[in-house]
Amino acid sequence: MNDRQGSDREPEPKVDAMAIVGTLLAGPLCWGGIGWLADWLTDRATPLFLPIGILLGLGGSIYLVWRRLPKH
């Protein structure tokens, strides 16, 4: 805990672990919600856009997490 420590050290890329969980949740929620809305608007008996939306959102989330990870 001396004065010099940290002052001339570049900040390491910090990954907020909860941000990963947040992103993984946000994708399916967002696009699943849009898909659900599309199902509801088109009056479908069996959901079609809901699963498509969830998968799309999950794919987007995983891509985002992968892109944001610091590369060594």
């Binding site: 909860m18 947040g22 992103t23 994708g27 696009w31 959102g57 892109r67």
Partner: peptide
Amino acid sequence: FMPGVPWPFYIILTPIEVISTLIVRPVT
């Protein structure tokens, strides 16, 4: 708009970014 991503991806990624950064983050 995360830099270095082909632009059609933004249609899918931007809503996720809005929710995860501006909504989920303060809530968690």
